[in-house]
């Protein structure tokens, strides 16, 4: 290996991680915009995506693309359930209570996952097996190409959803002014459940895509999810372009720092960036 192939390798790793962070950051943003809260269960949607993929492949015996679709659909449903059963009954306006509430729900989801799938690490095969591409001398897992393509597709679909569907427009209306949206007859409760469902879909997709090339356990989403949050803050919390830009910058920074500086402290970087942004410019790059 020479310096050039190293760099290509690091860049690809960075873009892959960045795509995942962007998906998670978008999930945080969707819920924040419609409900004004940070949804800590987002981190568990990521773990759930991986877990459901595992079950769909091993117990369900589905082919890989169908398994991914099933996993995403499952987490979408769970997202809506979390809102309907967990967040809605509290009817609280206090930030303190709502933040602690989603933390409690997140602990419950982790407890359930631990019960169902156990504490041990599981293995999920990548979508296209172990095949690799070579590019400029660097070898790249086919899975990383899938991650980038599917993330890009998800972002395009999200953009279309928010501009051209009734539900998407209703979500933007509620995000702008909840009372006004209710006055013109939009069912705000349905929009809120939908925003959790959408956050579940984004988190579930992130989990189903990344766990085959990293590792899968009931708490794997905590770190990925918190890094996704850091990406969202970096880009500007609640901003969709910001989530994508923040995710990519964070992914690249992380992979380059791990490659050229120190891999032991790789996981610290996201949190140093998070705190740096909060200290200097809390509204982020594009907020």
């Amino acid at each position: 290996m020479n310096g050039w192939t190293d760099l290509v390798q690091f860049l690809f790793a960075g873009i892959t991680a960045g795509a995942i962070y962007a998906l998670v950051a978008l999930g945080f943003g969707v819920v924040h915009n419609t409900m004004g809260i940070v949804n800590f269960t987002q981190v568990d949607f990521v773990s759930l995506g991986g877990m459901l993929l595992y079950s769909a492949l091993s117990a369900g015996g589905l082919p890989a693309p169908a398994a991914v679709a099933a996993a995403v659909a499952g987490v979408t449903l769970i997202g809506a359930l979390v809102e309907i059963l967990g967040v809605r009954p509290s009817r609280s306006e206090s930030h303190l209570v709502l933040i602690f509430l989603t933390i409690g729900l997140s602990i419950i989801l982790r407890g359930l996952m631990k019960l169902i799938w156990g504490k041990n690490r599981l293995a999920v095969p990548p979508l296209a097996g172990e095949s690799v591409w070579t590019l400029g001398g660097a070898t790249i897992l086919t899975q990383t190409v899938w991650i980038v393509v599917l993330t890009a597709l998800a972002i395009v679909a999200l953009r279309w959803f928010f501009r051209h569907t009734d539900l998407g427009l209703a979500m933007r209306a509620v995000a702008t002014n909840e009372t006004a949206a209710a006055v013109v007859g939009l069912k705000v409760w349905r929009v809120k459940a939908a925003s959790f469902a959408l956050a579940g879909a984004l988190g579930g997709l992130a989990g189903a895509l990344i766990t085959p090339i990293t590792t899968l356990a009931y708490d794997v989403g905590v770190l990925l999810g918190l890094k996704g949050f850091a990406a969202a803050i970096l880009g500007g919390f609640g901003s969709f372009p910001g989530a994508i830009v923040g995710g990519l910058i964070l992914g690249l920074l992380e992979s380059l720092a791990a490659g050229y500086l120190s891999s032991a402290y790789k996981d610290v970087l996201a949190f140093v960036v998070l705190m740096g942004v909060l200290f200097v410019r809390p509204r982020g790059l594009m907020g």
């Binding site: 602690f100 409690g104 997140s106 602990i107 989801l109 407890g111 019960l115």
Partner: peptide, 8 residues
């Protein structure tokens, strides 16, 4: 974990 979360 479940009990902790439920209590909260």
């Amino acid at each position: 974990d479940l009990i902790h979360g439920l209590v909260l």
